[in-house]
Write a protein that binds this DNA or RNA. Structure first.
Lengths: 192, 192
DNA sequence: CACACGTTAGTGAACACTAACAAAGATAAT
DNA sequence: ATTATCTTTGTTAGTGTTCACTAACGTGTG
């Protein structure tokens, strides 16, 4: 899908957005960081917009394993634990993701981009919602709470944790703190 | 604090960020929207950065009543309900806030702005944490869950709800959906 | 000799911001 | 009451800088 150079460009773009904000994502900055000229970039992407589309595509590819791993668990609560820990593991390994992935607002003015980003997010939410509903039917998850609320709680707290981790300058261990969050969520989901 | 014109400029800036993204927040766009010339803006704010500082200050002022109202409740769970509903009420009345207020990343490259925004957020979090801890001591909130986790769940799910509301084009009623979220959270907090 | 991938040099447009000037209202001395 | 002056808030016309992007050209490889 991506050539080596294209991947390098996308990774550099993510790095710049993470460290300097999207306002400083310019062709010049990407080119300088890589060490090639600006027109050279246009050999690999037709426009700046194409690079941003590449960024979202890159996220999709990198995040996919987190969803595939879910198949391995049978119990619903284990699936939820897996959902959280696998996502946090990937973000932990790619710290620059944290500052970019949950700031949909960054891509706001480009209809196509916001749509692409939303689709990616909604896909995750739908998968989690299915897990929760199935878990409620099998009595592994309490049924007196709206399934949509449970999804919002899981994803919302997970996102906030990532945001806090990123904003704090990665001062704490994301996976350790994620384990605590996960254990508490499992405790909340079980009883009732 | 703000003159009438300054307030108009800040409100216009928020409107532009919400509808066109921060990349399109330009002096020209603000001036055109208001119907004055660009240099006229500089009579009221020294620079574009000062306008962005004004945006954050404006949020602080508008959000303050949500925190003040908390004093009226005695029970911890009622305080939490109040925290959620009052915040959602204000955002519901100012829909443009939704797209701007939870996208800290927008202000990323300006150290001062990110600090100001973080301070505002952290203040809310600290207040909620105090409420939760007091509630746990008084046995109004279950104590087998980390207080920090509870805060993350409440704020995280609230923020996600607002983001979803904003992204969906305000297709659902924020306060109604917030009431459901709030009831479910109270249910989760009580037992144990 | 074709093609992939790079270069230098430059395009017009948009950006934040400024210099210089104008008009209106308030203040205050005559 | 009239005049003079200051302040506030606007204007037009520009500044230099940076932006995304392009034209034309080089060079090494199959």
């Amino acid at each position: 899908m991506f050539s080596e150079r294209q991947q390098q460009i996308v990774e550099t773009a993510i790095k710049i957005i993470a460290h300097k904000g999207i306002q400083n994502l310019t062709i010049k900055n990407i080119a300088n960081d890589i060490g090639i000229s600006e027109p050279a970039l246009y050999r690999h992407f037709g426009s700046k917009l194409e690079i941003l589309k590449g960024v979202i595509e890159y996220f999709k590819i990198k995040m996919k394993p987190a969803l595939e791993k879910l198949e391995e668990s049978t119990n619903s609560l284990n699936k939820i634990e897996c959902f959280i820990s696998e996502h946090l593991k990937i973000i932990s390994l790619n710290p620059d993701f944290a500052k970019v992935i949950f700031s949909e607002a960054n891509f706001q003015n480009e209809e196509n981009l916001i749509l692409k980003m939303n689709n990616m997010m909604n896909q995750s939410h739908k998968i989690l919602e299915t897990i929760v509903q199935y878990g409620q039917k099998k009595d592994e998850i309490r049924s007196d709470i709206n399934s949509l609320t449970i999804v919002r709680i899981i994803i919302g707290s997970m996102r906030l944790l990532v945001t806090q981790w990123s904003m704090s300058g990665m001062i704490f261990n994301l996976e350790t703190e994620g384990k605590q969050l996960c254990d508490d969520i499992k405790k909340l989901m079980r009883e009732g």
